[in-house]
């Protein structure tokens, strides 16, 4: 409670000061990270109240989608199902986490308007809330991953530490995108639709439903420059017992550094105004 017992707010004192205040917001949110977790947990519990299976309901429908697409498209693409179903299953689950966090990021500040306009809660608390909510949902969907890996025997060859590293990179990158769209969506209300269009397009352009090795060599830029491909590959490949290309790690590390620098700068510059946007 010590954090709440002294509050000092001042006018603008130059760019450096704004960054210091933004860092202070970040630090305060980390000191009360349990609050973000509570809010996220509450969101998940209340969203699925009344449905017996809770978020597993979504898991179930996701599982059916995996089965349907895996069987039918596997046939269409002439890929053996023991190769295609695990590929599609991991793709849908982890790509869902990526797009879910980004799409829901649009509402991060908009939904928190009431709280932000009368408390000194850190803004970052609400960013973590969105991220945690996605992770809680992912936790449920891991059931699909587990079932598929065990059923098709991939659990023996899967490289879990490397997959965990990939997941960390995925969350770190999705985090800044979520923050960025949260700020822009608070300011401009027509952004969420645009963000959704982008994530939908990404679902088609990214090898979620199709195998990357089916793409002709001359179109490889679609893979190499596609951030969603690298995000997905870093988690999916090790679980399927495949190696991850070095340039995927370089891409993701670079994207995380540049992305956080960009998102945090915009945050530092708009922090005072976000509450007024709402």
């Amino acid at each position: 409670m010590e954090a709440a017992t002294h509050m000092l707010r001042t006018g603008r004192r130059g760019a450096l000061f704004e960054f210091q205040m933004a860092f202070r917001d970040l630090r305060a949110s980390l000191e009360r990270i349990d609050l973000a977790w509570s809010l996220a947990w509450h969101d998940v519990v209340s969203r699925y109240r009344g449905s017996i299976l809770g978020p597993l309901w979504i898991t179930l429908s996701m599982g059916l989608m995996v089965l349907g697409i895996g069987l039918l498209w596997g046939e269409l693409f002439r890929v053996p199902i023991q190769q295609f179903i695990p590929f599609v299953a991991l793709g849908i689950v982890f790509f869902g986490t990526v797009t879910g966090t980004i799409n829901e990021g649009c509402d991060t500040f908009v939904h928190a308007g009431g709280m932000l306009s009368q408390t000194a809660l850190p803004l970052f608390t609400f960013v973590w809330r969105t991220v945690f909510r996605s992770l809680i949902n992912l936790g449920h969907h891991l059931v699909i991953v587990a079932v598929v890996l065990v059923y098709f025997g991939y659990w023996r060859t899967a490289n879990y530490p490397v997959a965990a590293l990939g997941l960390v990179l995925l969350v770190v990158n999705v985090g800044w995108i979520s923050l960025l769209v949260a700020i822009i969506s608070a300011r401009f209300r027509d952004i969420p639709q645009a963000v959704q269009s982008v994530t939908q397009a990404a679902a088609i352009m990214t090898p979620v439903f199709w195998l990357p090795d089916r793409i002709p060599e001359r179109y490889h830029l679609i893979l190499d420059l596609n951030p969603f491909y690298h995000l997905l590959e870093a988690v999916r490949a090790p679980l399927l017992g495949q190696g991850v290309a070095e340039h995927t790690y370089l891409f993701l590390a670079g994207m995380a550094a540049a992305g956080w620098a960009l998102a945090f700068s915009i945050f530092a510059n708009t922090r005072r105004r976000i509450v007024h946007y709402l």
Partner: peptide, 12 residues
């Protein structure tokens, strides 16, 4: 309450 940031001056 700390929700609004001052444009000038300070609140403590």
């Amino acid at each position: 309450s700390g929700a609004y940031e001052p444009d000038e001056g300070s609140v403590e």
